[in-house]
Amino acid sequence: MHIPDGLLDPKTFGTAWALGGIAVGYAVTKTNKELQERQIPFMGVMAAFIFAAQMINIPIAGGTSGHLLGGMLAAVLLGPWSAAIIITTVLALQAFIFLDGGITVLGANILNMAVIGVLSGYGVYLLFRNLWPNRTGVLVGTFVGSWVSVVMAAIACSLELSFSGMGALSIVLPAMLTWHVIIGLLEAVITTVVVAYLTQVRPDLVHQAAGSR
């Protein structure tokens, strides 16, 4: 879902830079407080894993492919603010070095995948985890939250495309959702498998929200 340069107009990508920038700035201050020093290597490895996994496009249906976004995976294990920093890092490297996602629209890609995707998915995850405060709650929340994170990012992307005159929202939104409700399932399966593995061997790897530690 990496938007290339040329698809968003200046008012849209400018607004996205502002909103994305504010959110990432806030994420920096939160991470500074919440991230534990011993988690720094995990943050690096998580970013590396997400970069590698994002290279793997998997055919989903109808001649279209999808790949892991990884925002929820990072959020469940390291918290939503560290996840926002991790996804922002991956997106910036992809844009500047690999021609994957544009430069002017980097703020929009950050807003969609590092901010909206991560925070919406994590919110859903927390609902389930509070409902079932055990490993089942973690895994069900991870599954549903991962799907929500992809769908919400796709909705944000559709709005930006539509604001930029790429097509009426009534056309772009259903078209984007058609593919991303399926790509979201891919996200949910991969994320839940990795979280299930990690929580089985090391339950303490799951990020605990402040106050519940």
């Binding site: 879902m1 990496h2 938007i3 290339p4 340069d5 040329g6 698809l7 290279m55 793997i56 496009n57 998997i58 055919p59 001649g63 279209t64 492919s65 999808g66 790949h67 500047f96 021609l99 544009g102 430069i103 002017t104 796709a154 992307c157 495309l161 790429m166 097509g167 056309i171 772009v172 078209a175 984007m176 593919w179 991303h180 790509i183």
Partner: peptide
């Protein structure tokens, strides 16, 4: 061995005729 099929956004951009608007700045 990753799929080279278009991803969801590329597919929508192809189907709705705005993939050609994509440019490379750097």
């Amino acid at each position: 061995f990753a799929s080279s099929l278009p991803d969801g956004l590329e597919r929508v951009a192809e189907d709705h005729g705005f993939i050609d608007k994509a440019t490379e700045l750097i």
